[in-house]
């Protein structure tokens, strides 16, 4: 076996959850469960269900990313914001490196608003 590309593409948590859930449903129908695959899909879906990606959908993620285009953020920073939508200034400071220099207070406030609007939190 050989790995040709370690990192061909990034996936957000929502995409992974969709794929795994489909997989879970299709294998259940056929009544044949592969041990390790069943374990890892169950555990991963279980983890992802507790995150904010449970309520996301492709349209809301697209809207959020379109909104983020106005700010100069890197790809991984945007990915992290989709996976864990920032709710406070502190969370933005953690995600974006040197955010104080790159983002104004106004920008930070707008990103939080955008996150709350497009990607609402999992019901508490």
């Amino acid at each position: 076996m050989e790995t040709t590309k370690v990192n061909a593409a990034y996936l957000c948590n929502y995409e992974v959850m969709q794929i795994l859930q489909q997989l879970k449903d299709s294998t259940q129908k056929k009544h044949k469960r592969e041990g390790s695959l069943a374990t890892v899909t169950y555990e991963t879906v279980h983890y992802l269900q507790d995150t904010d990606c449970k309520k996301q959908n492709p349209a809301s993620i697209k809207k959020f990313l379109d909104g983020l285009k106005n700010f100069k953020l890197t790809k991984t920073e945007k990915l992290m914001m989709v996976n864990t939508p920032p709710r406070t200034e502190l969370e933005i400071q953690l995600i974006a490196q040197e955010s104080e220099e790159r983002l104004s207070e106004e920008d930070v406030r707008k990103i939080i608003e955008l996150a709350n609007e497009c990607l609402p939190a999992n019901e508490s």
Partner: peptide
């Protein structure tokens, strides 16, 4: 946190 890896195998 998740990525796609491209692999080749027989």
């Amino acid at each position: 946190m998740f990525v796609l890896a491209e692999m080749k195998d027989v």
